[in-house]
Design a protein around this nucleic acid. Structure first.
Length: 554
RNA sequence: GGGCGAUUAGCUCAGUUGGAUAGAGCGUUGGCCUCCGAAGCCAAAGGUCGGGCGUUCGAAUCGCCCAUCGCCCA
């Protein structure tokens, strides 16, 4: 609708130019058609008079008055006013909102989709937790954000791939294997000193136990060096299985699982570093290889290969991003924990050094999750290895509540996740507020069916009967949906969907309390059922973008 | 010590990218079920947008300085 308003204003402007009243200049870029905060100011407001004033050497109000006269003749508007210093306040005639309902209906389940992405390829990489332990709540938030973002981008016409990067190389793998090995020895009654920096969690014992029951004591007297790989492989397999399972139940699916090992085994890592060396980005100091990231926006240079000949994680990340870039995506989105924010400049530096524009990569930082219980910090042991897992949260509050909670805040703000609140099927829980609106509409249709009413063909329905303020409000809110999805995709901010849905649900509830969908007036009932159906679809679609279900009953 | 981010109602947070009188939810207070689900609705109270200076027709939003908190790096 905003686009139509914009066109109408531009047309009026051109007419004014043709009349010689306005100077023949292009409309300044600072011209905006906005939604006014106050309802009394109409549906849209334009600042054209204000931004034109200095060039036209006339007062803003004069210019606005002239435009208002022209626009007043346009049937799109039923009221055009000049206000304040020279704003144009425009009210859309109800019939345009009402007729819009046909368009929304015809779009069916694709209502809300757009083509602002025009098929550009975007890769979203998220979670990417090391296979050294189960996913915890923080990963859950990253998973919800990444998956929902992918859904939103897809709806906005982008071509999406979701990827999980597996750090399955390096010291942590040795630590993992050794941890399991020690627990294995322990199981058979050996005295072991379990180092503090080893993985402490109970899942390590479980894996050791599993090995003991399958393989017996055959590794009991084998020195660690000769069986480490076996313990690593077994542990990684077991933990990865758990990660897959948790993600599946969380409703998150990845297109690719990319193993860091491949970077080493394929030689891409060596090749990438030596090419950077050829380009002069690498120098040697104290036996280590350094990357001149400080020339490319980072605050200092970074080590890519230590003096002991081992590549750093940063080196792997350079090669990994090169691999991604060469796959030809138009945009890479990385979703990281906010504690990695210091990492952004160096990865961007690596991208520039390889000849790509740095904005080819966008990094979303997901802040920590504070677990709460009834308003107080959840009792969590700070002992190493004990943390709340995604699995526990899933079992405790369920998928819908968890996903919605993770998406009610912008991702770079701290999130207080209250387990009791998420569990409570009550008014305080925003998930139910939205799902309830959907269930209520479904209940209306059940009622209609009981009364023997079946929805008519939209073309036979008189939408002009939808004239109460609540109905017009609902129609306006529904009209915003495709634009909202598009904006939320472009800004990479899926949380906007949850705000929108809460608002829409609120309007539905307000309407529901005031008016009856099914009444003794058959024409009015048909019109309202059409409105109800479109609202229901938007709720369902929006919840779907968040990965939350839209039940017919709660 | 340097860097990044935050600071908006008692609490948790939005604020459509510079617009008019600052917005929700929770909590508090008071009302609404003979009728499609009260898991809901309506109303009231609650604010120096951390502080200061600047940019301009106009600032919660942009710039600089300061304060407090969080994270990262030595």
């Amino acid at each position: 609708m905003r686009i139509r308003v914009q066109r109408a204003i531009e047309e009026a402007f051109r007419e004014a130019v043709a009349d010689g009243v306005f100077p023949d200049i292009p409309i300044p870029a600072s011209h905006q058609v906005v939604f006014p905060k106050q309802e009394a100011f109409g549906d849209f407001a334009s600042n054209l008079g204000l931004v034109l004033a200095s060039r036209a050497r006339r007062s803003p109000r004069d210019l606005a008055n002239y435009l208002a006269q022209r626009l007043g003749a346009n049937p799109l508007f039923d009221k055009v006013e000049v206000a304040g210093p020279g704003f144009l306040n425009l009210s859309i005639a109800s019939i345009w909102w009402q007729k819009n309902l046909y368009t929304m209906w015809e779009a069916g389940d694709s209502y809300g989709n757009s083509d602002v992405g025009s098929g550009r390829r975007v890769q979203v990489e998220f979670v990417s937790a090391n296979p050294t332990g189960p996913l915890h709540v923080g990963h859950g938030r990253g998973a919800a954000v990444g998956d929902s973002l992918a859904r939103v981008l897809k709806a906005a016409g982008f071509d999406i791939e979701k990827e999980y990067y597996i750090n399955d190389v390096g010291n942590q793998m040795k630590t993992l294997g050794s941890s399991v090995y020690l627990r294995y020895l322990e199981h058979f009654g050996r005295e072991v000193a379990f180092p503090e920096n080893y993985y402490q969690g109970d899942y390590i014992r479980d894996i050791a136990l599993d090995i003991a029951s399958k393989e017996g004591d055959r590794y009991l007297d084998v020195p660690l060096e000769s069986c480490l790989n076996f313990f690593i492989d077994t542990a990684v397999k077991s933990i990865s299985y758990g990660i897959h399972k948790d993600l599946r139940e969380f409703g998150v699916h990845f297109d690719n699982w990319f193993s860091e090992k491949i970077l080493h085994e394929s030689g891409l890592l060596d090749r990438t570093i030596s090419e950077l060396q050829d380009k002069g980005y690498i120098y040697e100091e104290n036996g280590a290889l350094w990357f001149r990231t400080s020339d490319l926006g980072d605050e200092k240079d970074r080590v890519v290969r230590r003096s002991n000949g081992i590549f750093t994680y940063f080196a792997s990340d350079i090669a990994y991003h090169r691999h991604k870039l060469e796959r030809g995506y138009d945009l890479l989105v990385d979703i990281w924990g906010a504690d990695h924010h210091g990492y952004v400049p160096r990865v961007k530096a690596a991208i520039k050094a390889q000849g790509y524009p740095e904005d080819r990569l966008r990094v979303l930082l997901v802040q920590l999750v504070n677990l709460m219980e009834g308003g107080r910090p959840a009792a969590m042991s700070t002992r190493a290895g004990e943390f709340v897992t995604l699995r526990e949260v899933l079992d405790d509050v369920g998928r819908d509540a968890a996903r919605f909670m993770f998406l009610t805040r912008r991702c770079d703000s701290h999130l207080d996740f209250d387990l009791e609140l998420a569990k409570s099927q009550s008014q305080e829980n925003p998930v139910y507020y939205v799902q309830y609106a959907h269930a209520r509409i479904s209940s209306v249709f059940r009622k209609a069916k009981d009364e023997g009413i079946s929805p008519a063909e939209p073309s036979h329905i008189d939408v002009s009967l939808l004239s109460t303020p609540e109905e017009i409000n609902l129609l306006k809110q529904l009209d915003l949906f495709p634009r909202l999805v598009a904006d939320s995709a472009l800004a990479l901010e899926p949380y906007r969907i949850s705000y929108y849905l809460t608002e829409l649900a609120g309007q539905l509830h307000a309407y529901y309390n005031r008016h009856r969908f099914v009444s003794s007036d058959p024409d009015l009932t048909q019109a309202r059922l059409l409105l109800a159906e479109v609202t229901r679809r938007v709720l369902r679609k929006g919840l779907g973008l968040l990965g939350v279900s839209a039940p017919e009953r709660l």
